[in-house]
Design a protein around this nucleic acid. Structure first.
Length: 852
DNA sequence: TCCCCTCGACTTTTT
DNA sequence: GTCGAGGGGA
């Protein structure tokens, strides 16, 4: 297959020109182990292959100038082609739904490489989700005909942030083997801080504070930057102190939360302009996907990397001072305002980057004219848009108008959708091409129940995740502690799991001691076992834990990591704990642990695996199974389906009451954009539903149709004829599986649907990875088809074992909380031997002793 | 230390 | 209505 790249060996050829101005070997560390092994990958650093009559560039330019455009450009429409070929200067592509946004991005990258403008490793391409990054990689691979090994800087904001931070961690005051905390860890950490500050966590919930901090970090605010009002609004006015305390704790734990993955690099770049300049030299081209979703922190990060010094008067723009940034987005699909996205970023792009080329993509290749007109008419009710109107050439009289259905209640809604799906199935439509997009996840349940009854396969996208399961988190905590022993959160999680008789008292003691001396709890435990601070039994247990962890740490370098994982789970007694457990879940949990170890095989090291899990929280779904997709409108963004069902268009649910209450007009507009996203997912058929009665928080409430329904254009929408009476039970002529209501004595388990389900099923509720999926298992090929091995850069092992001189002297009279008064008989570092008046001679830690 | 019961929450969610 | 967390009692 010819793709226009056949005669351009751009991966292998060196730029054949002499080093020019501004060209120097960057001091930026190499691209990790791959670079070290492969000299070729390093050649790009600092050297731009763009100018000069090099063999590669000349040929590429000739290729471009030939009448016949490269194959990969053919098939693009004029606007798309402009977006691909406008390589110099800032470019904003306003790409409406279904206008070939991803195609433009990927072709542009291919074009940059094919024309020899930059090496793959000189292109920074950022997305929001791992899914988008993966898709982009694949599609570029198809375009250039091979794996895209050479694009180390294609990834999510966060994964690129981690990459930067691992290289320059010490500039942020942490070590490069830092741990990435997830939201659960963060909440637990905050809970501890609130407790330490004796703040009532009933009145000031840790979760709320976690969200507050997240919000500040989204805005790029450090404790010093937050507005006074914000600071006062939490924890008796202690908001700022608490935030600072939290950051301090993260530093001692050698850990980062998600926000830090962006904020630390920003701080580093600001403090070290020379380093930033190295990256300016490296990144010839910057591409950003879904620009309308960027928050302030991401925006600041991008600005730092994108901004180049303006050319002096009279000087021409050169590769050194041109901002080759291309942002692609759609203001009408901005649906993440509630988590800090600033639509403003896209609205004022041309002010941020003067001289920007703005290109609108309005030709839609996805949907029918009816669907487009409906979506367009709806979104026109919003103010403050950049204003795009999607159009299509496709006008097929066979095309169905958008169907609006009414149902009595949510149960009937689910039943009717089920019937529609079965009808489509009989007409040979694949279930994979259908999706039910809901506003809120509680709506899913009704559909799941119904589909289990019908024996219809379904998959829930974005449900509960495997790594949130208890046994996975426990196992991961062991691994984390072994890789990074300052990870106190991991330590606390596993120290008494399985039960080792290390209760609250012991843990509190360890915690206090560790805090007082600013050392990890594992180190604190190592100290304490040499003393009499804790009872013999607890001491033995602690000794075991410390010894085990130390032993595993010793094995880390030279033992295959999957083997080590097994050793850890065995020796810690963790698997035994579940073997002994007689509850129903225990076998499943053991199975999950096995899967966990198996899935580690795809990674190069245990650290690589840990990093993957903390960054990539989605698990891949099985595409091979034909199943209806159920997901929220939010997670549907970027996807498309032949047939889309949009249930629950009622006031209060959609638009959601809380959006209206908290967001006012802009909240309503965001909801409307969400509706727009939902409609534009559909290629051929789109069904809207609203019900008159819905159960909310356990009680039935009567509802009125969404205002959005009134905003639809009458010419393109039709009210679907109900085959059954409104509010009655189904009487339709088709569907063998709809008699559970008609035959009251037959319970659901006797329906053919249920029997079918039984026949197909291996697990009708959840698969091992915590993915909810129906009827036939939708198992994830996490092990086999999982990600390629990852490498972690710049491994660094620094241990903080600073000894502080004891403030005590032999003979001092002291008081110990547990043993009372006594005299110091010996001192050994921080351990004191004391002759207690009552308890006799004991070894204790100086932290627990006061002079009297 | 564990288990049971009560109480409260309950939009969307990536990383 | 359902689930999870946390408190209190055995």
């Amino acid at each position: 297959m010819s793709n226009g790249f056949d005669d351009i060996p751009f991966f292998d050829e060196e730029p054949a020109r002499a080093p020019g101005r501004g060209e120097r070997r960057a001091a930026v560390p190499a691209d990790g182990p791959a670079d070290a092994r492969d000299g070729r990958a390093r050649q790009d650093q600092g050297a731009a292959p763009a100018q000069g009559p090099s063999g590669l560039a000349a040929r590429a330019m000739a290729a471009r100038d030939r009448d016949r455009a490269p194959d990969y450009l053919s098939g693009l429409n004029p606007e798309q082609r402009l977006a691909v070929e406008t390589l110099d200067g800032p470019v904003l592509v306003l790409a409406g739904a279904g206008t070939g946004k991803t195609r433009v991005l990927t072709t542009r990258i291919a074009h940059i490489m094919a024309t020899g403008r930059a090496y793959p490793s000189q292109i920074l391409a950022v997305t929001f989700t791992n899914k988008a990054a993966r898709e982009m990689k694949e599609r570029i691979g198809v375009l250039v005909g091979g794996a895209v090994e050479g694009m180390p800087w294609l990834g999510t904001f966060h994964s690129i942030g981690v990459k930067l931070l691992r290289r320059h961690a010490e500039l942020a005051g942490i070590r490069s083997d830092f741990t990435i905390l997830d939201t659960d860890d963060v909440t637990r950490l905050i809970k501890q801080i609130l407790q330490a500050e004796s703040i009532d966590d009933k009145r000031w919930p840790a979760k709320q504070f976690a969200q507050l901090i997240d919000g500040w970090k989204n805005k790029g605010l450090t404790p010093a930057d937050i507005p006074e009002g914000d600071a006062r609004a939490f924890g008796n006015g202690k908001g700022r102190e608490l935030y600072a305390a939290y950051q301090a704790r993260l530093r001692t734990l050698n850990a980062c939360d998600f926000g830090d993955l962006l904020l630390h690099p920003i701080a580093i770049f600001r403090k070290h302009p020379d380093l930033l300049r190295e990256y300016h030299g490296r990144f010839r081209y910057i591409l950003v996907d879904e620009y309308q979703d960027t928050n302030t922190a991401q925006y600041m990060w991008l600005r730092l990397l994108a901004q180049r010094p303006s050319p002096a008067k009279g000087e021409p723009r050169t590769a050194d001072n041109t901002v080759n940034i291309c942002c692609v987005g759609d203001d009408d699909q901005s649906i993440y305002g509630w988590r800090g996205a600033e639509v403003d970023n896209i609205l004022r792009f041309d002010k941020d980057f003067p001289g920007a080329t703005v290109i609108k993509l309005e030709r839609n290749y996805r949907s029918t004219a009816h669907i487009l007109a409906t979506a367009g008419h709806l979104i026109a009710h919003n103010e403050g848009r950049l204003g795009k109107t999607l159009f299509t050439d496709r006008h097929d009289p066979e095309d169905q108008k958008v169907q609006v259905h009414a149902a009595w209640d949510s149960e009937e809604e689910a039943r009717a959708v089920g019937e529609e799906i079965e009808q489509l199935q009989r007409d040979k439509h694949l279930l994979n091409n259908m999706a039910i997009l809901v506003r809120a996840s509680f709506q899913m349940r009704e559909f799941e129940d119904r589909f289990v009854t019908l024996g219809l396969n379904y998959r829930v996208i974005g449900g509960p995740r495997f790594y949130e399961r208890m046994e996975i988190r426990d196992a991961m905590a062991y691994f984390r502690l072994v890789c990074q022993d300052a990870d106190d959160l991991a330590f606390e999680r596993i120290v008494n799991t399985p039960k080792r008789g290390l209760g609250d008292t012991t843990i509190r003691l360890l915690h206090d001691y560790a805090r007082a001396r600013d050392i990890p709890m594992l180190a604190a435990a190592a100290d304490i076992i040499e003393t009499d601070e804790v009872k013999a039994k607890a001491r033995k247990s602690l000794f075991d834990v410390v010894t085990m962890v130390r032993r595993w740490q010793g094995l880390l370098e030279n033992t295959p990591h999957t083997e080590l994982a097994e050793i850890i789970l065995e020796e810690s007694g963790y698997t035994d704990m579940w073997k002994v457990d007689k509850t129903a879940e225990a076998p499943g949990r053991l199975e999950n642990l096995k899967e966990l170890v198996r899935s580690m095989e795809a990674f190069e090291s245990m650290r690589g695996f840990l990093e993957h899990v903390s960054l990539v929280m989605d698990a891949e779904q099985n595409e091979n199974l034909d199943a209806v997709n159920i997901m929220t409108l939010h997670s549907a963004k970027g996807l498309e389906f032949e047939t889309v069902f949009l249930p629950g268009w009622e006031e209060g649910l959609f638009p959601h009451q809380r959006s209206l209450d908290e967001g006012g007009r802009s909240g309503l507009e965001e909801e409307r954009r969400l509706a727009y996203v939902g409609l534009t997912r559909a290629k051929r058929r789109c069904h809207l539903w609203f019900v008159s009665n819905r159960r909310i928080h356990g009680l039935w409430q009567s509802t009125i149709p969404s205002r959005f329904i009134e905003e639809l254009p009458v010419d393109h929408v039709e009210v679907a004829e109900m085959e059954q009476s409104y509010g009655g039970y189904g009487r339709g002529g088709y569907g063998q599986s709809r008699f559970d209501k008609q035959e009251p004595f037959q319970n659901t388990y006797a329906t053919p649907g249920w029997k079918r389900a039984q026949a197909n099923k291996t697990d009708a509720t959840r698969d091992n990875w915590g993915n909810r999926s129906g009827v036939a298992i939708d198992r994830i090929g996490y092990g086999e088809s999982g990600p390629k091995a990852r490498t972690i850069e710049g491994e660094l092992t620094v241990r903080s074992t600073v000894e502080t001189p004891s403030k005590f002297g032999i003979g001092d009279r002291v008081f110990h909380i547990k043993f009372g008064n006594g005299n110091i008989a010996g001192i050994e570092g921080n351990k004191l031997t004391i002759d207690f008046d009552r308890a006799g001679q004991k070894r204790v830690l100086d932290g627990f002793v006061e002079k009297v």
